[in-house]
Design a protein around this nucleic acid. Structure first.
Lengths: 247, 247
DNA sequence: AAGTGGTCTAGACCACTGT
DNA sequence: CAGTGGTCTAGACCACTTT
């Protein structure tokens, strides 16, 4: 791997290692898919402890440069997919535009009584709140999970929806079966550490940094029709912003 | 602190601790500014090693729930400031709108020959590229750094700019002295680990997750006038998105 | 069964912050 | 100076993946 470490400096050893690997990736001397030496090999080669190696790799994983698999090894991540934060384009059409075969796997489908947060954002009746359909769907490409999407849909707007088939585009289904079109959305964009469930479904290590976009979606008439929480793998996506001066 | 740990489960100990603290923060049982017990106190109280305690805290720091200071301790972070990713509002007016006193500290001012990246984004002549003014400015509130902003300005558009006073709003200065108004911008939003310089200036630990927005700013006539790289402390900001359906 | 990363320990020393 | 977090070690055991 051609790395070297200088222990006679204030610069932490883990940081020296991390930066050398990062530069190799940025200069494309390490190409996507390449397997790094194992932690124990690096430990022996560099004469540092395994904890230090792991600390060096962790930062690269948080930034999405590397991925790890228990039992397999450490790998350079593929190029990230560019996604427009500002676009309300559905996941289905995003991938269609990229020429990638998107698989949608329904993880769970539940009808629940909304909590205070949902009542607020979906503007449900506080007295007799209507039930909400919760869909958890995993989006995969080549059997590799990319996005975990949780959708909250008020049944007063989408009656009968619970029996639908959710392997295609939800927005297309809304339009075709209910004549409802999403128009705009607002919410929050955040960094989150993966929970046990996120990790299992997205096939990443527990406590990996993930990117979360959580928005309320409205029709052109400002009717809230959906809360959408999308959890993106940070090694798979980069986010584009298009800003404009506010009037 | 009233935390407990069960070692007879598959759930990692560090994760149990992290989630208990997270919940206390979310339920506001731990309020902003509160100091947590020291790492060695937690170690003794919970009967786990210091490394495990530190691993638990690290995730909370990445999400911006906590901050650490060597020699001081671990603290619950203040509420985050909401920033619209989509707005081109300058930092100066953002804080003015919040009623916070923003201090701008000029860290460095250099005139450089642009590299390939700048030539591309600022659409400079590839043959005889004009020089670029690089400003590094720190934005602080109550002496606490919030944003590290690096600005690249082509001197062909802003002659004489290097001698300016950069403690106010740059956009105001562009308008008043050059008659140039920013109109829209596009670029990338990312998670980055802090470098040594970032860490020193933003007063965070080396290798802390930070949020970076790097955009090219244009006038209404699509003239690129600036590359702006803003590094946000993740314990200080949360990001709002407003999406619209693409036409 | 062998090899990978994941978790955890007990201890050491350093750098930074305050008194 | 004492106390804090920051770095690092050498070793142990576990769970997952592949052969």
């Amino acid at each position: 791997m051609n790395l070297n470490v200088n222990k006679n400096t204030i610069v932490p050893v883990f940081y020296q290692i991390q930066e050398q690997i990062r530069k190799k990736i940025e200069r494309e001397k390490l190409k996507p898919g390449t397997q790094l030496p194992t932690e124990r090999e690096l430990e022996a080669q560099l004469g540092v402890s395994r904890v230090t190696i792991r600390k060096a790799i962790r930062g690269l994983i948080t930034e999405g440069y590397c991925t790890k698999r228990a039992g397999k090894g450490i790998f350079i991540a593929d190029k990230k997919i560019k996604t427009d934060v500002h676009s309300l384009e559905g996941t289905t059409s995003l991938f269609a535009g990229l020429g990638k075969e998107l698989e949608t796997r329904l993880i769970s489908r539940k009808v629940i009584n909304p909590d205070a947060r949902m009542i607020k954002y979906l503007q449900l009746s506080a007295v007799e709140p209507e039930e909400v359909l919760v869909l958890k769907r995993l989006r995969l490409v080549d059997d590799e999970p990319y996005i975990l999407e949780t959708t909250y849909l008020p049944l007063c707007i989408f009656p009968g929806m619970p029996n639908g088939d959710f392997n295609g585009s939800l927005y297309q289904m809304m339009d075709e079966q209910y004549g409802i079109k999403p128009h705009h959305a607002s919410g929050i964009f955040n960094v989150m550490m993966s929970t046990e469930e996120d990790s299992k479904l997205l096939n990443v290590q527990l406590n990996t940094a993930l990117l979360v976009k959580e928005v309320t979606v409205y029709t052109a008439t400002n009717l809230p029709i959906e809360i959408n929480k999308s959890v993106f793998r940070s090694d798979k996506f980069k986010f584009i912003v298009n800003s404009a001066l506010k009037e």
